[in-house]
């Protein structure tokens, strides 16, 4: 395993890139709730599928679409 991981925001990931959610960087309680309710939490493995017009990523066996604002909140360890 490559140990030299670093943190970037989901919105800066490349398409098809994989990573593990490290942190949800926001004080906006409602965004936080939404992400958590869909199971997007630190430790969740995700893969970015598409960036435009919206961000689409794979969580487990489902795909989730979010806007840029929410995507930028998700900090990912790659």
């Amino acid at each position: 395993m490559n140990k030299s991981t670093h943190l970037i925001s989901l919105s800066d990931m490349k398409i098809q890139q994989k990573g593990v959610v490290a942190e949800l960087v926001t004080d906006n309680g409602s965004i936080l709730r939404k992400l958590m309710s869909m199971g997007i939490l630190p430790g969740t493995r995700i893969k970015l599928i598409q960036k435009f017009p919206s961000y689409v990523f794979q969580v487990g066996y489902t795909q989730v679409a979010v806007d840029r604002e929410i995507a930028s909140v998700i900090s990912v360890n790659i």
């Binding site: 199971g39 487990g60 066996y61």
Partner: peptide, 11 residues
């Protein structure tokens, strides 16, 4: 729950 998404739905 959707069986394949157990991990997200079990909470």
């Amino acid at each position: 729950v959707d069986a394949k998404n157990l991990q997200r739905m079990l909470p």
